[in-house]
C-alpha cells in the first residue's frame, strides 16, 4: 500500500493555518513530500472567507476586531466559516494520482466519504450532500472546499465539534437568501456540531485526539493508503511563515485579493 504522510498539528492561528496548507501544496508540487493528510485546529478562533467572497459583505469587521478574531481569505471558494472548536483537515494529492478524480464534483464525493465514515463510527447517521457538505439529521456538520493548483489537488474542510453560535452569528452576516432557505427547511444555514449530537463524550479531554485518529483511519481505509505520521519539514515551515507574512496577513489579499498567492514559486 502507498505510504502517505499524516501531520497532526497543534492548534494554530488562522493566518498560519492557511499558510501551512499552501506550503504543503507547494512542497508536493516540487515532489518534496508524499501525498499528505494534515489535521489541525484553531487557536485563537478565526474566520475564513471563500476566495470569491467580499469581506465586507460576509463579516462584521469591527466586531471581529473587537473580539480578536482574524478574518482570512482562503485560496479555495465556498462560504465564510467561523473556526472555533472543530477538527480541520486538508488533503493533498498530485493531479497525476488516480485518487485525484478529473471531475471536481465526483472528487468531493470521494474525499468527503472518509468524513461520513468517521461520523458513522460514532453511530451518527451522516451522509454526503453535494456539492461539498456532510449532513446529519438535515443539518450541516462538515463543509469542504477544493482547489487545483500547480499540479496538486488541495481539499480542506471542517468537522464542527462545538459551536458558540451566538458569537458566530454576531460576527458573520448571514444573507437574507440563506435565512429564507433555512426557514424553508433547506439545510443551508442550518448547522449542528458533535457536542450537540454526542453530548458528554465530547467533553472528554481526549475527544479531539480520538476524533483525529478515527478520521485518519477513515481516510486510510477510504483512499487505500497507510499513514506515516511526521512533522512539517523545516523547508515547509519556513515557507509557511513567508506565505503567512506575504499573503494571509496582508489586507490586499484579505480585502480585495489585489495580490496573488505565489503557487509553487520555489519550484517554477
Amino acid at each position: 500500500m502507498e505510504e502517505w504522510r499524516l501531520i497532526i498539528d497543534r492548534p494554530g492561528r488562522g493566518t498560519y493555518n492557511m499558510a501551512v496548507d499552501l506550503s504543503i501544496l507547494n512542497s508536493l508540487a516540487r515532489q518534496a513530500c508524499p501525498p499528505t493528510l494534515r489535521l489541525y485546529s484553531w487557536y485563537p478562533p478565526a474566520i475564513t472567507i471563500g476566495y470569491f467572497q467580499r469581506l465586507e459583505e460576509e463579516v462584521r469587521i469591527n466586531k471581529c476586531r473587537a473580539a480578536g478574531v482574524d478574518v482570512i481569505r482562503r485560496v479555495t471558494g465556498g462560504g465564510a466559516v467561523f473556526h472555533d472548536r472543530e477538527l480541520t483537515y486538508s488533503v493533498f494529492i498530485p493531479l497525476s494520482h488516480s485518487l485525484a478524480l478529473p471531475s471536481i464534483r465526483e472528487s468531493y464525493g470521494l474525499l468527503c466519504s472518509p468524513i461520513v465514515e468517521c461520523l458513522k463510527s460514532y453511530g451518527l447517521n451522516a451522509h454526503f450532500s453535494p456539492v461539498n457538505d456532510v449532513l446529519t439529521g438535515g443539518a450541516k456538520l462538515s463543509g469542504s472546499a477544493q482547489t487545483r493548483r500547480n499540479g496538486v489537488l488541495l481539499q480542506h474542510g471542517t468537522l464542527l465539534v462545538g459551536a458558540d453560535t451566538e458569537l458566530m452569528f454576531s460576527l458573520l452576516n448571514v444573507s437574507k437568501e440563506k435565512s429564507v432557505a433555512a426557514a424553508e427547511g433547506s439545510p443551508e444555514g442550518r448547522v449542528t456540531s458533535l457536542s450537540a449530537l454526542l453530548g458528554e463524550l465530547v467533553l472528554d479531554g481526549e475527544f479531539q485526539t480520538d476524533l483525529s485518529m478515527r478520521l485518519a483511519n477513515a481516510f486510510a481505509e477510504g483512499l487505500g493508503c497507510v499513514f506515516v505520521q511526521a512533522e512539517l519539514s523545516e523547508a515547509e515551515r519556513r515557507e509557511a511563515l513567508e506565505i503567512e507574512e506575504g499573503l494571509f496577513k496582508r489586507e490586499e489579499w484579505n480585502r480585495d485579493r489585489s495580490i496573488r498567492p505565489a503557487f509553487g514559486a520555489a519550484g517554477d
Binding site: G50, Y51, F52, Q53, R54, E57, V75, T76, G77, G78, G79, A80, I104, V131, N132, A145, Q146, T147, R148, R149, S175, E177, K178
Partner: peptide, 28 residues
C-alpha cells in the same frame, strides 16, 4: 450557491463588473 453581481454603469454600458459569492470556479 449564492451569487452577487455589482455593475458600474456609464451611459447604459457596463464599465466594471464584480461577481462574488460562495460558489467555486476553477481555476479561481
Amino acid at each position: 450557491k449564492l451569487i452577487r453581481i455589482r455593475l458600474e454603469l456609464e451611459a447604459h454600458e457596463v464599465r466594471e463588473a464584480a461577481i462574488s459569492g460562495d460558489f467555486f470556479i476553477h481555476p479561481e
